[in-house]
């Protein structure tokens, strides 16, 4: 019986595999809303806008990757936005004091990884609820962002940083803005790690059933730690992008980004309960987020409406997931009954 179903089962299996189904649904949604916006206002579909749009999406995708890693282990990282701010302020402050962009970035990297380490220790070693632990580190990181330049935004990071600004925001390579390339490279690396390595498999296992993973010899500590370090790293990169964008450090840089990161992940089918979701979904999720922001703006919708629409989309995508899961459970129960 099993065998005869195989050919038909193949497609079904691909779709049910780790949320591929939801990625496809969200992907179709993305195409539809993009088409609608293009019809409403032809400028939306212009190459000029698309290339700007991609650049808008890039940072959301990057933090989305970090948040997805953490969500897949069944945890959450609320410190993302503050780490972005900390990275932006720290690198900018160093550059205004004459430190080279490269060295500034390296020091910023070390500091941001410190926040990631702290999150990892609190959650994985001390078993703190991730919501509380990262709420704490979120506040601390924002405090550091304010502290580094004595509670002022920085001055311009200056002429020396022009290359830095080109690399992280203004420059183009092969006709596409650099941050898009950065996002693409990070996505390729982290997607590979997640889908094709032992560490990636362990992220799913820990998120699916921490106890079963531990009994199987998986180190839950290093797995959860990895997720938080990746998240801090991604946030740091986005902080550099923000610094390059404005050419100065702003203390409120990255505010609410942790929520955008959750939205991108969840719209793309990453479950906040852990164990499921893929980074292709995060790409679709971040794109939907970007397209809605950009498209609604072109359609003349005020900011208030943009917020409401994005909020509704997040709720609908989670609702779809919940309904899907319930129906699946019922099907399995029915099958069990038939066996008996």
């Amino acid at each position: 019986m099993m065998m005869s179903k195989n050919s038909k089962g193949f497609l079904k299996k691909i779709v049910s595999r780790r949320g591929v189904g939801q990625v496809l649904t969200a992907g179709i949604g993305l195409i539809i809303i993009s088409a609608v916006f293009a019809i409403i206002n032809p400028i939306f579909g212009s190459w000029n806008n698309i290339s700007n749009l991609l650049r808008q999406i890039a940072p959301i995708l990057i933090i989305g990757i970090g948040q997805s890693y953490v969500l897949i282990t069944g945890n959450i990282d609320l410190s993302i936005g503050s780490v972005v701010g900390m990275s932006c302020m720290m690198s900018a402050t160093l550059m205004t004091r004459g430190v080279s962009p490269l060295i500034s970035s390296l020091i910023t990297f070390v500091a941001c990884m410190g926040i990631g380490l702290m999150n990892g220790f609190l959650v994985a070693r001390f078993k703190m609820p991730p919501f509380i632990a990262t709420l704490g580190s979120m506040t601390i990181a924002r405090g550091i962002a304010q502290l580094v330049n004595n509670n002022y935004n920085t001055d311009s990071i200056g002429e020396n940083a022009n290359t830095f600004r080109d690399i992280f925001y203004y420059g183009k390579t092969v006709g596409i803005y650099n941050p898009v390339w950065i996002a693409l490279i990070l996505w390729l690396i982290f997607n590979f790690v997640l889908s094709s390595t032992k560490s990636g498999r362990h992220l799913y296992a820990v998120g699916s059933n921490e106890e079963a993973a531990r009994f199987s010899g998986v180190s839950t500590f290093s797995t959860i730690m990895t997720a938080y370090l990746v998240s801090a790293f991604c946030s740091m990169i986005v902080g550099l992008v923000n610094c390059a964008t404005s050419g100065a450090g702003t203390m409120d840089s990255g505010t609410s980004y942790e929520m955008y990161a959750v939205a991108a992940s969840v719209i793309g089918g990453v479950s906040t309960l852990g164990g499921t979701g893929i980074l292709s979904g995060t790409v679709v999720g971040a794109s939907i987020w970007g397209v809605l922001q950009n498209g609604l703006q072109f359609a003349g919708a005020p900011l208030a409406w943009r917020n409401i629409v994005v909020g509704v989309i997040v709720i609908i995508s989670v609702l779809l997931d919940v309904v899907f899961r319930m129906s699946k459970k019922v099907t399995i129960q029915k099958e069990e009954k038939q066996i008996q």
């Binding site: 799913y204 059933n209 079963a212 993973a213 009994f215 164990g275």
Partner: peptide
């Protein structure tokens, strides 16, 4: 004691 989100083979080889 299994990971429901992983496949049969992934569970057998977990760890």
């Amino acid at each position: 004691n299994m990971c429901h989100h992983l496949t049969v083979a992934e569970n057998i080889f977990l760890g």
